[in-house]
Simulated scan of single mutants.
Amino acid sequence: MRVWHQLTDFVQRHGAAALITVHDVKGSAPREVGARMVVRPDGAFHGTIGGGQLEFRMLDIAREMLMAGRGPARIVDQALGPDLGQCCGGRVKILIETFDGRDMEDLSGLTEAEAEGGLFELECRLEDGRVKRDFASAVGDDRWTGWRETHGEARTPVLLFGAGHVGRALVLTLAPLPFAVRWLDDREGAFPSHVPPNVRAVRMRDPAAEIDGARPDSFILVMTHDHPLDMAITVAALRRDFPYVGLIGSATKRARFEKRFRELGLPEAKIRSLVCPVGLPGIAGKDPAVIAASVTAQLLQVREQGRLAGNLSPPAASNDR
């Protein structure tokens, strides 16, 4: 969630908004430090700090603060077990702030930083009861006392080759997740009229150039309409060291491609690193939405674990093409 964008939007359209932040955690808690919610005066909200009684109580406090008008920030020290009956049993501090039109200048700068992408750090302190935020300095200031917040998202780049049924389903499942998708197809009119904000649809002219220009941490997914094109893209990808190279297809397709890979002189380790069929083992459905869900879970797994695709167990699914 783009927190500052959402806050700005709520303030502009509804006159005010509240920001709820998990400020500190001791022991087990539903969400980590930095989890956030943005709340409208009518109680509607975006984001979550974990749901359950904790979230309900913080929403009530935020609405009360919004009804009272823009005022000082509040830190709520909340035990989860004895106070709320939540099984996690830890303790959290929740920071709740209110904003209105007087904050638009500050919100504008933060929204711009968020729109640039990537992570950025803020130095925060209480000033007259409200949180004052400044962009963190690389040099630092010994006189500064307060805390630091991290904002933005570190999105993993994904090159998705192919705008067929599975490709279309996949961009929808990736839409709310921390991926930046470059969606590539060489056919005119292949893309839908609208794509999610984290997707850039590109009419592909030179597949090899796309692979050559990709960041080293990119995930590569190949599912075009043409097997020779699949082959060319996959070979180019396997000649680099990407964390994940996935090719849609059955075990039979993989065997045929492997034969050609060896003829082209690709090392066996590179051939073994290819994920084909794509998706988590045990999910064998061939409906595009099922394949998309399975592949998305696999990408999240690779992203979270930080493993190379070659270290994954060979998937047992079949994505016949």
Rank of each mutant, 00 (worst) to 15 (best):
E268V: 08
L126S: 01
E55M: 09
A35K: 11
A232R: 13
R2G: 04
D217N: 07
G249N: 14
S193H: 13
R168E: 03
D142V: 13
S294M: 07
T21L: 07
F257S: 03
R31Q: 15
V22L: 04
L172I: 12
V166D: 11
M37P: 00
L247Y: 09
A236G: 04
N311R: 15
I75A: 00
P228K: 09
F161D: 10
G265L: 09
Q12G: 05
G129Q: 10
P30L: 05
G279H: 04
Q78F: 01
S250L: 04
K270S: 14
E114G: 05
R143K: 10
R57T: 09
E304W: 06
G43R: 15
G117R: 07
W183P: 12
H23W: 03
M104I: 06
R303T: 12
V275G: 09
R125Y: 00
A35S: 15
Q53N: 11
Q12K: 11
A316R: 15
E112R: 10
I61Q: 08
S294R: 04
V11C: 03
R256W: 01
A115V: 03
G69L: 09
A284W: 03
G129H: 08
Q6V: 12
C124L: 07
Y244W: 06
A317L: 01
V235E: 11
A237P: 06
P178L: 14
I291H: 15
A17F: 04
R31G: 06
D100A: 03
F45Q: 14
V302A: 02
E304C: 04
L221Q: 07
A289M: 07
M1Q: 08
N198R: 06
G71Q: 14
R36E: 10
A163M: 02
L159K: 11
I271Y: 06
P216L: 00
T150F: 00
A269Q: 15
Q6H: 06
G167F: 02
G47T: 09
T150M: 01
G152I: 13
H5T: 14
R133Y: 02
G167S: 03
F161L: 03
F99L: 12
R13A: 11
M58G: 00
R239A: 01
G15I: 03
V199Q: 05
L66T: 11
Q298V: 04
G167H: 06
R13F: 00
H46G: 01
S108L: 10
F242G: 00
L174S: 03
V76I: 07
R307E: 11
R2Q: 13
Y244L: 01
R205Y: 00
G27Y: 05
G129A: 07
L160T: 10
A44L: 09
I291Y: 14
D226M: 01
G249A: 10
A180I: 07
P72C: 05
G69E: 12
R155I: 14
K286H: 08
R272N: 09
D206H: 08
A35V: 07
P72T: 15
D185R: 01
I94G: 02
A138R: 10
M1I: 13
V195G: 04
P216Q: 00
R130A: 08
V131S: 06
L119P: 06
S193V: 10
D226L: 00
G52C: 12
P315C: 04
G265P: 13
D134W: 00
H227S: 08
L84T: 14
V158W: 13
R130M: 04
E105G: 05
L59G: 15
A138L: 07
L300T: 02
P314V: 15
R303S: 08
